[in-house]
Computed example of a mutant assay.
Amino acid sequence: MSFELFDGLDPPTEEVLADGAVLLRGHTLASAPQLLAEMRAVTEQAPWRHLVTPGGFTMSVAMSNCGRQGWVSDRHGYRYSACDPLSGLPWPAMPALFAQLAREAAARAGYADFDPDACLINRYAVGAKLSLHQDKDERALGQPIVSVSLGLPAVFLFGTDRRTDRPRKHRLQHGDVVVWGGPSRLAFHGIEPLPLGDHLLTGRFRYNLTFRKV
């Protein structure tokens, strides 16, 4: 199945964030309504939940997953699971549009043959944030991360593989996609607390689709 992602819009601009990391401005603007519709269908099957960290803290970001693997966290640690721990059922299948978008964005950023098997879906309400962290629970660290922003804008923090290095701040808008891998694959990154706002398509929320190869 083929999807038109740009629908006559100007191609996205590209900004290099670091060696191996690229920001694709406006890459999903045309497909955003369909992406959101597919996301809502996924979260009807695997509802939003606030995960608990191994240290016992409840995350401010609500999460769900789709694909062959889903990322989960509890007092036992961070890991991937083929089943939703709330239902015991396999996670919803990754929508075809999701997978195509991730492959196209990765290829545009210089990572050919990306084939994600997991999509972590995050929902940010006002004040929600994501502390600096590395995506390192995957075995396939040679594959990139593809991160899609939908809804309210947010400040993205992107650093190096050393936590002590101060990260740079990048304002992410609706439709932006960040791809990082190679030398930047284990870069620390996060999201500052989401400010109050109201988006035409998502109301007072920001959504993030993060594609990985586990």
Rank of each mutant, 00 (worst) to 15 (best):
S2D: 13
E4A: 13
E4N: 15
F6H: 05
F6G: 03
G8I: 15
L9S: 14
D10V: 08
P12Q: 07
E14Y: 10
E15K: 03
L17V: 10
D19I: 03
A21H: 00
V22Y: 04
V22R: 00
H27D: 08
T28S: 14
L29D: 06
L29M: 10
A30D: 06
S31W: 00
Q34N: 01
R40C: 04
V42A: 09
T43L: 06
P47A: 02
W48M: 06
V52P: 01
T53M: 03
P54Y: 11
P54T: 12
G56Y: 08
G56C: 09
T58Q: 08
V61I: 15
N65V: 10
R68H: 09
Q69E: 14
Q69G: 02
S73I: 02
D74L: 05
R79Y: 13
Y80I: 05
Y80F: 15
D84F: 11
P85Y: 14
M94A: 12
P95K: 02
A96S: 10
A96T: 07
L97P: 11
L97H: 02
F98M: 10
L101N: 02
L101K: 03
R103E: 12
A105W: 00
Y111A: 01
Y111R: 05
A112P: 07
A112C: 04
D113P: 06
D115F: 06
D115P: 04
P116D: 05
P116T: 13
A118V: 04
C119M: 11
I121A: 04
R123I: 05
A125D: 12
G127V: 09
K129L: 12
L130Q: 03
D135M: 07
D135G: 07
D137Q: 10
E138A: 06
G142F: 13
V146L: 05
S147F: 01
G151Q: 11
L152A: 09
L152N: 06
A154C: 10
A154V: 08
A154F: 05
F156C: 06
L157R: 12
L157E: 10
T160A: 02
T160P: 01
D165P: 04
R166C: 08
R168C: 12
Q173M: 11
D176F: 03
V179D: 04
G181L: 13
G182F: 09
L186R: 14
G190I: 04
L194F: 11
L194G: 01
P195S: 05
P195E: 12
G197A: 06
D198R: 15
H199C: 15
L200V: 15
T202K: 01
R204K: 13
R204M: 11
F205L: 12
T210R: 13
F211C: 11
V214T: 15
